[in-house]
């Protein structure tokens, strides 16, 4: 099937098999390998991207479901320089091996848009769908909370 969608602000068209997952389309079809495949079972969140502005797990979305929609990946998060959430991850040491980081950042940006004033307990609860096997959660939670404030222009 011919699939057309907008990825990181650019319209792309490709012939794909209907069973192509969004994450496969992004990585293999478009070469956007910043979106990682961790568990491939909707649990770890390494493949998190934004679909029509909402965070989704791209290993459990068909590329076809995103047809006609706008998708943003870690590569398209910031047009120029680092996004405030990326900078917050650096400043708070929100990554160790870095494998979960693209998904973490995409999830955190969406969470920050929804509620910039979350408490630490809320931040931990809302990150339940993103797993860091280095267990570096303290830095990630700090980055989420601070990044949310930066995005809201409070810092």
């Amino acid at each position: 099937m011919l699939l057309t969608l907008t990825v990181n602000g650019r319209e792309v068209s490709r012939n794909v098999e209907p069973r192509t997952l969004l994450v496969e389309f992004l990585r293999d079809g478009l070469g956007l390998t910043g979106t990682h495949i961790g568990c491939d079972t909707t649990q770890c969140g390494a493949c998190t991207v934004h679909l029509a502005g909402r965070a989704v797990k791209s290993c459990t979305v068909l590329a076809a479901q995103a047809g006609g929609a706008e998708v943003t990946t870690i590569e398209g998060l910031s047009g120029d320089g680092l996004h405030p959430m990326q900078q917050a991850f650096i400043d708070h040491h929100g990554l160790q091996c870095g494998f979960c980081t693209p998904g973490m950042i995409m999830a955190c940006v969406a969470l920050a848009h929804e509620d910039p004033d979350m408490t630490e307990a809320q931040a931990r609860e809302r990150l339940v769908g993103n797993i860091c096997r280095c267990t570096g959660y303290n830095g990630i939670v700090a980055a989420l909370m601070d990044g949310a404030k930066r995005m809201a222009g409070d810092v």
């Binding site: 459990t60 999830a107 769908g129």
Partner: peptide, 9 residues
């Protein structure tokens, strides 16, 4: 239900 990203779909 599940987690925020799953709830978005």
């Amino acid at each position: 239900i599940a987690d925020p990203s799953v709830r978005n779909m």
